[in-house]
Design a protein around this nucleic acid. Structure first.
Length: 116
DNA sequence: GGTGTGACAACAA
DNA sequence: TTTGTTGCCACAC
């Protein structure tokens, strides 16, 4: 047995890593894919603890409603919006159109991306 | 080893 | 649409 706490975080980060450019995913979705259904809040914590120098595309993670998880005019929200736009994701009023940009991973895609 | 917390989600109004 | 409430539970202290 190894420490699970760090493994869970690592799993979350690995999952976020495979979000394709130009797509977004919700916190709950990440939790599901990371094998922890219902642990959306844990995903939030994992990102909060994320070192600023990491290469994790945290900005591709939004709320289930498609809204950015920060107050509209906060630094982080603006930063996230900027990076999303840079990714090709349209952001209007702090929210994106899920039907158009939400990531719909296929099983083989996940296996391929996460097999290491 | 008990408590408070949270970058959420779902539902209500 | 927006705001408020509640459930959730692993994690940090």
């Amino acid at each position: 047995m190894v420490k699970l706490a760090q493994q869970n975080y690592q799993k979350i980060w690995d999952t976020i890593r495979v979000i394709p450019q130009g797509k977004i995913a919700s916190y709950g979705q990440i939790a599901d894919l990371a094998g922890m259904p219902g642990r959306a809040r844990l995903v939030g914590r994992a990102l909060k603890e994320l070192p600023s120098n990491s290469d994790i595309p945290w900005f591709r993670v939004l709320r289930s409603s498609g809204q950015i998880a920060f107050p509209k005019y906060s630094e982080k929200a603006l930063s996230q919006k900027t990076q999303l736009l840079n990714d090709g994701v349209e952001v209007h009023k702090n929210r994106v159109k899920l039907s158009q940009f939400q990531w719909s991973p296929t099983l083989d895609e996940l296996v391929f991306q996460l097999k290491y």
